[in-house]
Design a protein around this nucleic acid. Structure first.
Length: 316
RNA sequence: GGCGGAGUGGCCGAGUGGUUUAGGCAAGGGCCUGCAAAGCCCUGUACACGGGUUCGAUUCCCGUCUCCGCCU
């Protein structure tokens, strides 16, 4: 796996994609998406996907991989992300991972091995969950694997199902838990930090812009392509809310407000996920009007690799 | 001015004469190995003000203030 990966992480609307492009241009890099929803074709406005023009000639990987009907999952993403990292590295370029999906980032950067899955087993367990409730399945889990039952709350049906699935498939306890953070990771992770009020303001603006840019039409179009049946894609922020609106269950304004609210909550969850990682390098982006200056500070934060690019002759 | 109704935690909104004072939303905190923009958990003693009745009042009574209707 790549030894010199740069990861640009942070809450939604903090400016990760833009900085990733700047870094790529400065360092001779290519961007790898680490956003769980930008992997879908046609989900552009609502995921704030960079346009071709905005990518400024920098190759982007792992965007537009899948049809909206296809479910996504970390294991597939991990495989693809590692290929991309290795490939970019092999060509002597710098892989720059950019995105805010915490588990995807860890999957790409660390040696997490995900036990397999089986659609039939999964479907059966989910039916049981529906019928008997999470508590009943949790009781069963406690019998099979007390440690796992302890780690998963009785109300968290989703994780209980996964634990039971893994046990059934492997015949062994579901011991999989996220590893401790290694002292230093295989990557430099830059966390784009800004104050809550500013972040919330940006989120509000961004959501308004999405609506103005024709987000509704995008969702209408995707609905015709089966978005509603897409297990993963139909749950994406904004899409989920607009599907409800299109079904006549809310107004467009309500959908917009709920999207903004949901996005703010997402940002909090992203913070609480990444905040725990002691290896992260913080980069304050609050009130930074000058992208060039931000890039400079980002390069400085990267240490030696960044310093080379900052030398005048490296140019940008 | 008269009559009627209402004043509950940031907002909405139930409710009760007395162990635990609903619920929803927002907010804050946290968890996380195959849907992760998902899923899940934790956190809020508020009853407009002043009197009175009562062993005890957010709940009953009186007054004050404010708001909303209708009337003049």
């Amino acid at each position: 796996m790549g030894e010199r990966v740069i990861a640009v992480v942070g809450p939604t609307a903090a400016g990760k994609s833009g900085l990733a492009v700047e870094l790529a241009l400065a360092l001779g890099g290519e961007v790898i998406n680490a956003d769980s929803m930008q992997v879908y074709r046609g989900m552009d406005i609502g995921t704030a996907k960079l346009t071709l023009a905005e990518r400024r000639g920098v190759p982007h990987h792992l965007l537009d991989l899948w049809d909206v009907r296809q479910p996504a999952n970390v294991a597939d993403y991990q495989r693809l992300a590692r290929w991309a990292i290795d490939d970019i590295t092999a060509r002597g370029r710098v892989p720059i991972l950019a995105g805010g999906s915490g588990l995807y980032v860890r999957g790409a950067l660390e040696d997490l091995a995900f036990p397999g899955t089986d659609p039939a087993v999964r479907a059966r367990l989910e039916a049981e969950l529906e019928r008997d409730g999470a508590a009943a399945l949790h009781t069963r889990l406690a019998g099979l694997d007390p440690a796992a039952a302890q780690a998963v709350l009785p109300s968290n049906g989703r994780r209980i199902v996964r634990a039971l699935e893994v046990i059934e498939l492997t015949g062994r306890p579901f011991t999989a838990t996220l590893p401790e953070y290694a002292a230093s990771g295989p990557a430099v992770q830059l966390w784009l930090r800004l104050p809550r009020e500013e972040l919330d303001r940006r989120i509000g603006t961004r959501v308004d812009q999405m609506w103005a840019a024709g987000f509704e039409d995008e969702v209408r179009r995707l609905e015709r392509h089966g978005l509603r049946e897409g297990r993963t894609a139909s749950r994406a922020l904004g899409y989920q809310q607009l599907l409800r609106y299109l079904a006549g269950e809310s107004t467009s304004d309500q959908a917009r407000e709920e999207t903004a609210r949901g996005t703010r909550r997402l940002a909090r969850r992203q913070e609480s996920w990444f905040r725990r990682d002691p290896r992260i390098t913080w980069l304050d982006v609050s009130g930074e009007p000058d992208p060039g200056h931000l890039l400079d500070r980002a390069l400085a934060a990267l240490g030696p690799a960044g310093a080379r690019a900052r030398a005048p002759q490296a140019g940008r």
